[in-house]
Every structure is written in C-alpha cells, then in structure tokens.
Amino acid sequence: MEIIVCIKQVPDTTDVKIDPKTGRLIREGIPVIINPDDKAAIEAALQLKANGKITVLTMGPPQAEEALREALAMGCDDAILLCDFKFAGSDTWATANAIAAGIKKIGKYDLILCGRQAIDGDTAQVGPQLAESLNLPQITYVQKVEINGGKVKAERELEDGYEIIETGMPALLTIVKEMNEARYPTLQGIDKAYEAEVKTWKAADIGADENKIGLKASPTMVKKVFSPSAKGQGLILQGSIKEMAHDLVERLKEREIIQKF
C-alpha cells in the first residue's frame, strides 16, 4: 500500500505574541515541531503501511526540511518539500491547490493522511479542500481506522460520539491526535534520515497554476492580527446572598455560559 502523509511544521507553542509595531507574529526563537495531529497521521501511516511505502510531504520554507527528516527518522520512506516563494502567503484554498499539484506529480497512492488541524492556524480546512481538489472521498476527524479487502473503515469523531464510515480507496483521511501515541524517532532512524534525500519541488516542477497559488490568488486575506484584550477589572456583586445568587445566574445566562435547565 502506498500512503502519502501531509504534514506542517508549526511553532512549539500557542503562546505567541504580536509585534505591536508591525502587527506581525513574533516567531523568532520559538522552536518548531511537526504539528501534533500530523504526527498522529504519520504514526497511523506507519501502523497501516504493511509492505507498502510512505511518502511524507509538506509545503513550507526551506527549514521545513527538518520536519520531513523527523518523519523519515520515525520510519517514513520518502520525503518531498514543496518550497517556492510563489507558494508564500497561500490561504487554505491556495495551499490545497499547491499540495494537490504536488500529489498529482507523485502519481500513485492508495491513501492520503492529514492531521485534523494545525495548532497555529486551527482551520482544519486543508484536508477536505485537498480531497475536493483530488476528487477523493474524505473522512475527517478520524479516531480509529482499519483497512480490509481494499476498503477503509474509520471511526469519525462527533461531538457526542462517533460514526463508522466505510469507503473505497484511494481516499483522504484527517486524523485526530487522540488516535495514537506517536513513536519517537530512534537513533538508528535519525541516522537513516540524515543520509536520505529530501526532494524539493518548486511550483514549476509540479505544474502548479500560478493563478491558484500564493498570497494574491488566495480568496481570503488577513486584514489585521491582534492580541485578545486582557481581562478587565472584575465586578464585585452586591446585595443579600439571595440577591447575589440571582444576579449571578442571570449574568451567566446572559453570557450563555449556562443554559436553561
């Protein structure tokens, strides 16, 4: 079985600050990691692969190569970096277009695994958008998966339980990190990863349509980023104990923290 895993390199924290002068995120000095849901997708692929092959793919700056090498060290067989300034600033639509072009160049695959969502953007959109671009069936929020007789059977997490969905292959699944405990790379794996080749593909290499990638082709645009306002001065409620209890319940209802019973 041939599996493609799409990953993203993200800052190892959600505790980021904004430079008040430029309105930009301060990313300097924050270590980077493979996005946690994506790491679970790698682990899922390693458990499913049997005698197959796993290709791990990312789009990002040159330093995203380190995330690919970590995936190789965990046991993936092949690594591809989509890296071109023409991809820069892509929103989820344009990102899905670029990755779809990269996957078309890879050609053969039975399964594509993505993480549910990245801890920086939190959109959870690229997976389904990629599935649409490649015209594949999708199963999102997958918490358990098995493959039998050429069919994928997956548990798709819901707010209050899960549903079991079956589909043929090829298909695209987005994996939640709760599915598994991702393995650590071994020392031998790290050795192998640093001897392997990471292929770098530019927009031209994958025949990406320049009207569908990058910042300017992206249908959404960020107008502004800002830090959420800090907590204001708290309110001390007044009155008798009964009055305060009533007041408190009304305020919580108003803020929709508690609902009607």
């Binding site: 970590e70 650590y184 790379p185 640093y194």
Partner: peptide
C-alpha cells in the same frame, strides 16, 4: 550539527 539537533529534540521530548 543538524543531526545532533535532531537527537537533542528527540531525547528532550522523550
């Protein structure tokens, strides 16, 4: 080296 950094990252997380 990059490989030493990869080892450090792995063992630190572990």
């Amino acid at each position: 080296t990059k490989k030493q950094l990869a080892i450090k990252k792995m063992i630190k997380e572990f």
